[in-house]
Nucleic acid binder design. Structure first.
Length: 341
DNA sequence: CGGTACAA
DNA sequence: TTGTACCGG
């Protein structure tokens, strides 16, 4: 679930116009999780092709990113998680247990006929397997967007792409890219602007928000290293936080004492022994430096074969997505030519 | 989630 | 213009 920085951040609402013409480094599987959670029928069942393979993520990716490209002239680099960092194993185990519990509860609620509650469990049980990752990569490439593989966490690689100027901001629901030093983070990059709150059985209206690392740090008078120390106190994917310490207390302590090393021993003794290793994951993560970023026109034949022949999409719908992607590509290409001339 | 159609 | 209902694979 990443790090909870919510109480420390004052995002600026930028709306969809705020990403016009921008290149976003998308945490691809973060986006896929949202689609798997929400692109479902009224019983909470995922969409599938005739072989029973999940297609909900393909529906979501096509409609969202083709329209953002077409209507807002945005473009995307899709960044994928690599092998999980060894220190993340405990967190992954925890999530797996949560999913399994939710799956069971889903089946029970469904057999009792409680469709609304069943749906909320289906959302928690969303799971990304290898086939979903591979089909996502295949679709993104056919759409003409570059795919970048991270060594471990996609958020680290996406942050690096923004630091290098290859993308304007990271697009993700999670905060972690800021800890990896991304200068900008865009949250809630959706078209309809709704977030489903399973606990409340309600949807809340949201518009895209921008968080600037510089403003976050200067606003609190801290350094990136200190922000990472705050995260370690609160808890990250790589360590349990100190009990009773939330984001606000952590900020106060790090501002007062400067760093984890200087905390009073009463707090410091609750830190994990390997906190320096966790700090280095964020400050100095292994990166893929040999990525290639080629933006191509959409592959019409490839998309038809993949979506219509293999995944039972209606050809009429696929043509709509294709037209958007073609128009968006031509417009960006034209803009670039003008810029170079 | 996102698209569409139709109501008030 | 906003709400609501239904569909997509």
């Amino acid at each position: 679930m990443g790090v909870n920085l919510t109480p420390l951040v004052k995002p600026k609402k930028i709306g969809l116009q705020g990403v016009r013409g921008r290149v976003l480094a998308v945490d691809a599987l973060n986006s896929v999780y949202q689609f798997l959670a929400l692109v479902r029928d009224e019983r909470g069942m995922l969409f599938t092709n005739s072989r029973g393979e999940v297609t909900s993520h393909l529906i979501g990716l096509l409609s969202r990113y083709s329209r953002l490209a077409y209507e807002y002239d945005a473009s995307f680099i899709f960044v994928f998680d690599g092998s999980p960092h060894p220190l993340k194993a405990r967190e992954l185990e925890k999530r797996k247990k949560q999913r399994e519990k939710a799956k069971q509860e889903y089946a029970e609620l469904l057999s009792k006929g409680d469709l609304r509650k069943a749906f909320s469990k289906a959302v928690v049980s969303a799971e990304v397997d290898d086939r979903i990752v591979e089909s996502t990569k295949r679709l993104v490439r056919l759409m003409g967007f570059p795919v970048v593989d991270a060594v471990h966490d996609a958020e680290a690689q996406a942050a690096y792409l923004v630091k290098r100027g290859e993308a304007w901001a990271v697009s993700s629901m999670d905060w972690d890219s800021l800890l990896y030093g991304s200068p900008r983070l865009v949250r809630y990059l959706t078209l309809t602007g709704f977030e489903w709150l399973p606990s409340k059985q309600k949807a809340r209206k949201l518009i895209p928000e921008l968080v600037t690392l510089e403003e976050l740090l200067s606003g609190h008078g801290i350094t990136l290293r200190q922000l990472v120390d705050i995260a370690i106190l609160v808890g990250t994917d790589y360590n349990e936080g100190v009990k009773g310490v939330g984001p606000l207390r952590a900020l106060k302590m790090i501002k007062r004492y400067g760093s984890l090393e200087n905390l009073p021993v009463s707090v410091r003794r609750h830190l994990p022994e390997n906190y320096e290793a966790v700090r280095q994951i964020f400050l100095n993560p292994p990166l893929n430096e040999k990525y290639s970023l080629s933006f191509s026109p959409p592959d019409k034949e490839g998309l038809m074969k993949f979506l219509v022949d293999e995944n039972d999409f209606s050809p009429k719908r696929v043509e709509v997505y294709l037209r958007r992607l073609e128009a968006a590509y031509e417009r960006r290409k034209g803009g670039l030519t003008r810029f170079l001339a």
